[in-house]
Amino acid sequence: MIQRMTPTAVILGAVAILSAVVFVVIIWPNTTVDMTPSEIFRERTAEEAAGRKLYIANGCVYCHSQSIRAFDWGHGATRIAQAGDYVQDEPILLGSARTGVDLSQEGGEHPDDWHMAHFINPRWTRPNSIMPPFEHLGMENLRLLTRYIQSLGMQAADKRMQRQAFWKQASTKAYEAGIEANVRWLSETVPQGWRDIPTPYAASDYSLARGRMIYQGFCIGCHGPVGDGMGDAQPHIYPPPLNFTILKGRGISGGLIYYQVMNGITGTAMPYFKKELESQKIWDVGNFIAAYFIDELDANGPPRGIDAAYEP
């Protein structure tokens, strides 16, 4: 039997096997894959396509997947990827690692200025990020990259971008009307029920220590180490990050802070954190901000419910 393994038999046999397999696992599926565009599909603009080229050239695909899996619900996913989402992608950029976050539906999650600050140095908006800074690409390229990122999610992203644009206008107007008007706007956009409740937990040393950790990991890049809104990202963001030190005596309740941290302020660079921070962590960071930067605490004040079991 071994004598039959002539060079011709080996090479032709190997090529024959490869051809048969290519037919089964490449050609056949290629002819059966459904290439119908999905319901959110739209074509990319020239600027978005240029941004995508930068995304490829700089290896973004090695850390960012664009592939939301059926069980990524727990991960906060809002939509599972479908074959029809990818019908204009050449190459397709599914990615193989989530060293960073999945970007399938990133478009419209943040306004453009957040992305610019984040590209210049990711730690300015996300203090624990390990993404490389991309300032070296130059502002024009970063603008194009931002266009591409904002298009991810296609029609769904466009809707989110419209929402961003609408609230950007409103928040800018409020900011430019001065401190009084801005604080009033920031308060009035929170439902009354939330504004009425104080932080239900005492600002214990433990709570403040935890809040400090959260602040350093999530807030410090924009609001700065002393809470005056002069973090590293500040020059790139408009309306600029809120200066907490001006809030004393302006009726800022724990519930109001909680709501803004949880839900974010769409249109501004303030993201929503409910995906990343559980309830206790949000209350704790609110306590930290109120205690250290506003110097006005309503923690554990009236109206009070039944004290939680652990409370001293």
Binding site: V25, I26, P29, N30, V33, M35, A83, Y86, V87, Q88, D89, E90, P91, I92, L94
Partner: peptide
């Protein structure tokens, strides 16, 4: 590259 899902395959 190919287009879409066949490219991944």
């Amino acid at each position: 590259a190919l287009l879409g899902i066949p490219d991944a395959i």
